[in-house]
């Protein structure tokens, strides 16, 4: 689905929750400005689709849903003013999909082309670390973020890999000579 996320991003009407009738499995898309309200709705929909009585799995899915959404809020190149809260947020697409034994949460947003290699390298690096190495890397990067006073924790990708226990799935789609579309998927065993 990551390969098709850009197509959905282009075709789904903005600011709507959307289901594709051609898909057989439970799912929901959101395309548009990622506000705090959207994140709260997205996490509610994740829990509804997941439909699990296991509180820890629910917390895991909830946390990954928040981090994916906030990645778009902070890092998307496309930004827009939300009329309700009068603040500027990142734009992108969110997707929650339920399969028989796992859930997949995905997010996509436009990035500058020069960011592609950095993100590709970072995700590949994260994907070759085991759980203990991810903990160490998380702590190191979080401290670096504190020292350099960067906005946010800057450890969202590490956090999602650490929490899910699965590799980060990524796909880049070239839009033009300046921009690419970054799609990120995280599988959560249920």
């Amino acid at each position: 689905m990551l390969e098709k996320l850009y197509e959905y991003y282009k075709k789904i009407p903005p600011e709507t929750w959307y289901e594709d009738k051609n898909l057989a499995h439970s799912h929901v898309f959101f395309n548009g400005i990622i506000t705090q309200n959207v994140i709260m709705c997205f996490t509610e929909k994740i829990l509804k689709i997941l439909n699990s009585s296991d509180e820890i799995t629910n917390k895991l899915a909830f946390g990954i849903g928040v981090e994916l959404s906030q990645n778009i809020q902070i890092h998307s190149v496309e930004r827009a003013l939300d009329k309700n809260d009068q603040r500027i947020h990142g734009k992108g697409i969110l997707l929650c999909e339920k399969f028989p034994s796992f859930l997949v949460l995905s997010a996509g947003n436009v990035i500058k082309k020069e960011t592609v290699k950095f993100l590709d390298d970072k995700c590949k690096f994260i994907n070759h670390l085991n759980h203990e190495q991810l903990r160490e890397y998380y702590n190191m990067e979080r401290r670096q973020s504190l020292i350099t006073k960067r906005k946010g924790g800057n450890v969202g990708l590490i956090d999602m890999a650490k929490k899910s226990g699965n590799p980060l799935n990524i796909h880049f789609h070239t839009i033009d000579e300046k921009y690419s579309f970054f799609a990120l998927g995280v599988r959560i065993n249920s």
Binding site: G63, Q70, R142, L146, G152, G153, D159
Partner: peptide
């Protein structure tokens, strides 16, 4: 805490420091 995001995690680290 029942849940906090990574940005909050950095803020808790700052408080502890």
């Amino acid at each position: 805490m029942t849940y906090f995001n990574t940005a909050s995690s950095k803020c808790f680290l700052e408080i502890l420091e």
